[in-house]
């Protein structure tokens, strides 16, 4: 039984296991952040945003240009977050608002159209010349020993950044009036208007926050995968899995889902029999696990099944 494993079993090589779990948590925090963006948008406007990854890409490319122009890494990161915020808000105002009252399928198709549109424009502007492009990280790529395993400083930086963003969003949603208004709008837009909440502004803010978080994700992923127009696609797929796993309307669910998917992906890649499964099958296996979870919890682990009126 143990011999068919691709790697030594966890109890024989705890260091490898620890390394897999920790690097799984690091990539998981990326999935968690992007999933958070997807959830923010789904909660506020009921849209599954297929363009979430391309929005991040569309922020990362100009930031790469800024890096070339000699801006320091941290400045670039903050400008990128601001740009993502503006892009998200702009997209909500210009192309999502007009389809808000259309059938959900139309809105899905609009985000698919946006996906193609942004990808193509980015190819046109930036993807001339050598690809993929190198994107620098403010965290460097040094190796650090964290007890059970060695990981890069960039991974630790991602984990810290992710936790920081989650903390900020938690405070925003639970301890500010603006957050209260955004939550109310997500639950019941009609009643929110009667409370005097500017619902349109809250929806736009939801997209803007998702854009900002997405922009940050793009800039954190690019140093690892390098930068090319479709570099976010794989991340987006795992982020979808994470968001659905936790429940599309639950921000804590997105975070748990992200970490879970990140670790599961690594363990599936390491500890499955290589002749019939193995690393090539880690994506299908992760997705299979997701579908199995959905069968028992059709709205994810922490999501709510929406009651529909007859």
């Amino acid at each position: 039984m143990i011999e068919v494993f691709l790697a030594p079993a966890p109890w024989n090589d705890p260091e490898l296991f620890g390394e897999q779990v920790i690097s799984g948590l690091a990539t998981g925090s990326i999935y968690a952040l992007l999933a958070l963006g997807i959830v923010l948008i789904y909660r506020s406007t009921d849209v599954v945003n297929f363009a979430q990854g391309e929005m991040a890409m569309f922020v990362t490319f100009p930031m790469w240009s800024l890096t070339l122009a000699g801006f320091p890494p941290w400045t670039v990161i903050f400008i990128g977050i601001a740009l993502g915020f503006a892009l998200g808000g702009f997209i909500e105002r210009t192309i999502i608002r007009p389809v808000e009252d259309k059938p959900p399928l139309s809105v899905v198709v609009v985000t698919l159209g946006l996906f193609v549109f942004l990808n193509s424009i980015a190819t046109w502007i930036w993807a001339q010349g050598e690809l993929p492009k190198v994107f620098s990280t403010p965290f460097e790529f040094n190796s650090v020993d964290v007890g059970v395993a060695r990981v890069t400083t960039h991974s630790i930086g991602i984990l810290v950044a992710a936790l920081a963003i989650m903390g900020v969003l938690y405070l925003l949603f639970n301890y500010t009036k603006l957050g209260l208004g955004m939550r109310a709008t997500a639950h019941n837009p009609g009643a929110s208007r009667l409370m005097g909440i500017n619902v349109g502004r809250m929806l736009m803010l939801g997209w803007a926050l998702a854009g900002a978080v997405g922009g940050l994700v793009g800039m954190l992923v690019a140093p690892i995968t390098f930068l090319f127009p479709s570099f976010m696609l794989a991340v987006l797929l795992y982020a979808f899995a994470a968001a659905v796993f936790g429940g599309l309307d639950s921000p804590p669910g997105a975070i748990v889902g992200g970490f879970f998917v990140g670790v599961a992906e690594n363990l599936f890649g390491t500890y499955t029999p290589s002749d019939i499964l193995g690393p090539e099958m880690k994506l299908p296996l992760t997705l299979l696990l997701l579908v199995i979870v959905l069968l028992f919890r059709p709205a994810g682990l922490f999501g709510h099944v929406r009651t529909r009126r007859v």
Binding site: L180, G181, A184, H187, G190, A191, S192, L194, M195, I197
Partner: peptide
């Protein structure tokens, strides 16, 4: 306006509902 069917924010606490009433 206290609407038909109450339209409370069901998943939020009583206190949060009152705070939303005072949003403006």
């Amino acid at each position: 306006h206290v609407p038909e069917g109450r339209q409370l924010f069901d998943e939020m606490t009583v206190h949060e509902n009152l705070m939303l009433g005072a949003y403006t």
